[in-house]
Design a protein around this nucleic acid. Structure first.
Length: 294
DNA sequence: AAACCTCTCAACCGCGTCGGG
DNA sequence: GCCCGACGCGGTTGAGAGGTT
């Protein structure tokens, strides 16, 4: 007997998510947290398969997601990590907070691959393309290449620096980036402080990075969303996000509470220091959901 | 303005892995 | 040790947006 489908195919909705579905899912997860995805659709009142809910949440609705294109530094980090890890997108994504494996995979296939080819670098092996290899003579498919090179991917740690260096010397990368493969040049980075720190922390690691990535995942921001004690006020006790949300009886309450901060303009009130990036991203997420669905 | 082409990315599919019984 | 269910991952697809002719 074959494997059972992950969900009952009959009556399960597919395709793009509606605003209503997004609201239900966000509301459910904010209230109950992430557990047992198979049960989520039923409990949340969604006609979706659990897998689809998980994907929607992790790739799109999670409040700690960054939006927009990858920065130059992030792009270079992806290249570097890819040279070490191959197509292990989730491992790569774990090193880029706020980015999903799907996002990185898409960005790799649509942007980075082309850039590398343009630069004369084989996106699969990260070696310079052979002279006799015509550009049109590209790898048939990535999966084919991975089959051939999959084992090699893990063994190429020393060469990864070549790729990074090659990228750093490329005209294309130099134009808009002050990034250097040297960990000591972080003052030149154009990304945010935290981001820079992370990126350069990663690049400053050599073999430990590989072993770390292969053996133990560095946790992403998947820990419960708790409001840390504000750096600017000592009046209020820190409240956990869950406790706040659980006191709200409906999605409307939650939604209004979250979006209220945006409408007020937290920066205008000098509240911007009261929220960490996770909370700020929640506001962005709410805004995005509203905007995307009109 | 319309038809066609290209690109992007959200979503799906199937398989591998893991953990509980 | 085996089986089964659930989750997570990587590859692929396809709708829609944007660009070109």
């Amino acid at each position: 007997m074959g494997r059972q489908p992950c969900c009952d195919k009959l009556g399960v909705k597919k395709g793009p998510w509606t605003a209503e579905e997004d609201k239900k899912l966000i509301s459910f997860i904010l209230t109950n947290g992430q557990c047992c995805w198979r049960a989520v659709p039923k409990l949340a009142g969604l006609k979706r398969c659990g897998k689809s809910c998980r994907l929607r949440w992790t790739n799109y609705l999670r409040p700690d997601l960054k939006r927009g294109l990858l920065s130059d530094a992030e792009e270079k980090l992806v290249i570097d990590l890819h040279s070490r890890l191959g197509n292990r997108w989730s491992k790569i994504a774990a090193r880029l907070p706020g980015r999903t494996d799907n996002e990185i995979k898409n960005h790799w296939n649509t942007h980075i691959k082309k850039k590398l080819l343009k630069m004369g670098i084989d996106p699969v092996t990260h070696e310079p393309l052979k002279k006799e290899a015509n550009l049109s003579d590209q790898p048939t498919t990535e999966s084919d290449q991975n089959k051939e090179n999959g084992h090699q991917q893990v063994q190429v740690v020393p060469q990864s620096t070549n790729v990074t260096a090659a990228a750093a010397t490329s005209t294309e990368f130099d134009n808009n980036s002050s990034f250097s493969s040297s960990a000591s040049s972080s003052e030149n980075s154009s990304c945010t402080t935290d981001e820079s720190k992370l990126v350069f922390d990663n690049l400053s690691e050599n073999d430990p990075l590989l072993s770390c990535l292969l053996e133990a995942d560095t946790p992403l921001i998947d820990s419960p969303w708790e409001f840390p004690m504000s750096s600017t006020t000592t009046v209020e006790e820190p409240k956990s996000f869950d406790s706040i949300i659980s006191n709200m009886t409906s999605w409307e309450d939650t939604f209004n509470w979250l979006s209220g901060y945006q409408e007020f303009g937290i920066n205008d009130f000098g509240f911007d220091n009261c929220f960490n990036h996770v909370e700020l991203d929640i506001f962005k997420t709410i805004d995005n959901v509203e905007n995307r669905h009109g």
